[in-house]
Design a protein around this nucleic acid. Structure first.
Lengths: 119, 119
DNA sequence: CAGAATCCCCTCAGATACTG
DNA sequence: CAGTATCTGAGGGGATTCTG
């Protein structure tokens, strides 16, 4: 396969397990910010290893930024969506709309699955 | 992880290797139709096993249809985008636009990678 | 609190060979 | 032409443990 292929390149940024849910959680945060532990508890079953790995990837790819305050104790670490991260949220929303139209009768509200709020 | 989660469910339909390229190839075909061998040669390095597997998945998920003419010899088999398959093309296009804006200076035209034609 | 390090398992893509 | 069957290797996700 052509390694540099545009569409495949793109999907690599968001297709891995948990990545889109992480982006949505950041989006829902005030100012699009969330702490490590907030993400951990919001996402339920995710393990620390995987959450950490996904955050590093997203940071490296420029979709999020990590701001660390080492003066406080315990260390305060926050993650925030960048411009490009914010724009990819629209694609994720479109995916949800597509799924709701074609695939899913629907599930009750409460998390990312509500049909009322397209988020 | 919540198995029924909307966004994850959606991405499963298109995130696997080759799937989006297959959909784009069908989209580019006249009437959004392509034969097995056409896909095989368009996609270059894909193996028959993987192409076959992706097509079965897409068929099962209702994104494409398979029309077989057994009266002809050799058997003539065509794949065509369904309505839902056609609509997901827009999401793939948006992904490409995103990638071109944020990630890729660009590669010369010729395949799925041209910035002139957003396809 | 915010991770890094290890180990295990299991899926998936690729290669190869075969069939109607 | 249009696939199926089988084997293999690499990598990703999960569980657990440890650290500043």
């Amino acid at each position: 396969m052509q390694e540099g292929c545009t569409v495949n390149l793109t999907v690599k940024y968001i297709a891995r397990k948990w990545t889109m849910l992480i982006l949505l959680e950041l989006y829902k945060g005030e100012g699009h910010v969330r702490r490590f532990s907030e993400l951990k508890s919001c996402l339920g079953d995710i393990t620390q290893k995987v959450l950490s790995a996904r955050l590093r990837e997203l940071e490296k790819e420029g979709l999020i930024e990590n701001k660390v305050d080492k003066t406080s104790f315990p260390v305060r670490s926050e993650y925030i969506l960048t411009e490009s991260g914010l724009e990819i949220i629209n694609i994720i929303k479109d995916m949800k709309r597509w799924a709701l139209k074609w695939k899913i009768s629907n599930i009750e509200c409460g998390c990312q699955d509500c049909s009322q709020c397209v988020l």
